[in-house]
Amino acid sequence: MVMSKELEKRSGVKTNSLTVIQAINNGLQTMLELDNDILLLGEDIGKNGGVFRATDGLQQKFGDHRVIDTPLSEAGFVGTAVGMALNGLKPVVEIQFLGFIYPALEQIATHVTRTRTRTLGHYHIPMVIRAPYGAGVRSPEIHSDSVEALFTHLPGIKVVCPSNAYDAKGLLIAAVEDPDPVLFLEPMRLYRGQREEVPMNAYRIELGKGKTLQAGEDVTILAWGAMLPIVEAAVEEMKQYQISCDVIDLRTLYPLDKEIIAGSVQKTGRVVIVHEGHETGGVGSEIISIINDTSFLFLKAPIEKVTGFDVPVPLFALENDYLPTKERVSKAIKQVYEF
């Protein structure tokens, strides 16, 4: 991002051109250096450096007491991380793919998210759960699930999803420092795409804040993670029709950035929401509820959603038909514009 190059000049902080996965690796390294209470747990994260190499080199650098290869046991190591957090540590756990988080769901729903409440604030769980997620990389069955809404629905955990390398590091550090549990979703499709200038120091991006990627007047587009490149391609196409779009990367899915949503919708009056998770009960429906509460009288057209369908994410032969496409997004933009 140009901004960070300028930042390097202004602040004298060194930057490197990194992919999303490298930025996550760098963010983890930065935090391991800063705080001895932070440790990493997960399957194949040590010697192997993680199946996507998110933790590459970290066990060599920080030792196997801080970068821990756990047995194949999601309920076990998430529960263990709860115990560590109760006792003052700050575990960052990796779930190998979001589709394999389900064995840990009990720990998350009954302990990770509730400990602060049920101990009247005496204990809290400063844990980060990282999980690669999403379709579009020809993964085997179950590896492509996009179930962020299961977690935005659970009280007591924040849900974050970066769409680029700069945000990935800044959001990750903010998540690690957050005193409460955070689910950190990493769109697999973006892991090795674009590179960006990423500062080598510890910087934070506030959780709960979206970002305007492109300012426009006619249509608000709300999306996150791997949907943004698709949105941007559709928005580019819309320029030939003189349709200008306000593109917002929400970045945090719980709590949602009510102000950025309302501000944009009150400007444009037309909204398209794009997400890859299933339509029913998806985060998109929650966004519509925020628009209803904040901006109902500003709307000029019914809100359009472009989402995954109410079907299990298909095997890869059909995954691109499941995923929102540029064509589906373009069609929705035209529909709200021409209404």
Binding site: E43, D44, K47, N48, D69, P71, L72
Partner: peptide
């Protein structure tokens, strides 16, 4: 092995 984890670290 379980991917990279040898059985003596599994159990």
């Amino acid at each position: 092995f379980a991917i990279s984890l040898p059985v003596n670290k599994q159990m």
